[in-house]
Amino acid sequence: MAVGTAGRLWARIGTGMAIAGAVGLGLVAMPAGAGAAPNLPPVSPEDLVASVEKADPGPLNGTVELDNALGLPAIPGAPDLANGTKEARVWSDGTGKGRVALPSDQGEKTLVSDGTTAWSYDSTDRTATKKAVTPGEHRPEAADPTRSAADAITELRTTSTVTVDGTAEVAGRPAYELVLAPKPTERTLLREVRIAVDSEKRIPLRLTVLATGSADPAFEVGFTDLTFGPQDPSLFTFTPPPGTTVKDAPQGDRTPGGKPAGAAPTVVGDGWDTVVIAKRPAPEQAPQGTPDLSRLGTPVSGSWGSGRLVTTAVASAILTDDGRVAAGAVPEQVLTEALSK
């Protein structure tokens, strides 16, 4: 019994089970390896960009993952900006109705737009915020790779070298890798922006931002899961559940996931070395929850005045003592020049 042949057999089976379990754990733990780059017919960068601008994917749903390695300092009151991974589930009917779910461990933010009304529901305080939207101004998605990639292409085309650099598989779909690299005259911290474009639907599936001097992406947003096809229409309607506080979003207040709409910022330069200069709201006017930025960065000064410089892997910002903020994906010098103008 203690050392019976059956016992030995079962000891071996036990060992086998334990090893199989460990291997299985490894398989569960390891991310699915990227498949071989798919073979796709060659396409010119111009055609690819043109097709992206015309793309109409129709109804779809999927999961978007945002991987932030921008290296922003931890700002009290704004933990969402710190490094990390976030996930969003998106549904779109292809005609301007959409739904986004931003899950957290114990709650969820839900954004629903039925084309005329945008609802934002927060499960943690059970409030629903309602806002009228004009058709065309739709897409509440802040982290939609399709949207942000299309914007990036429009914005950067003229100042970039655009190439098609092979193929990739994103969310199980074959895609072209469109690469936008700054022209040599551009003074920027960025090395390139890579956009994976779905080979069939021609929508961007993934946007990757690479900074100079680093092989790992500083920022990446892309689908991890994507299905095209008709969506349940009930997804795009929202009825506040019982026990919900319903608020109307006042005009000029924050849009869901957006920035405070204040004085229009000044834009200096274009393309990769664009610098945005804006007025900061005075601390006492700041709405509840605005991050306290007064202790960040290192002091700098120049002909433009003095302030504090905050740098990350892909961007720099100067917060001047006179209440302005200048930011861009550029080195410090470009910022100070812009401030001096």
Partner: peptide, 10 residues
């Protein structure tokens, strides 16, 4: 569970 039971068996 497989690791645990396997080890226990062994």
């Amino acid at each position: 569970a497989a690791i645990g039971v396997g080890f226990t068996l062994w």
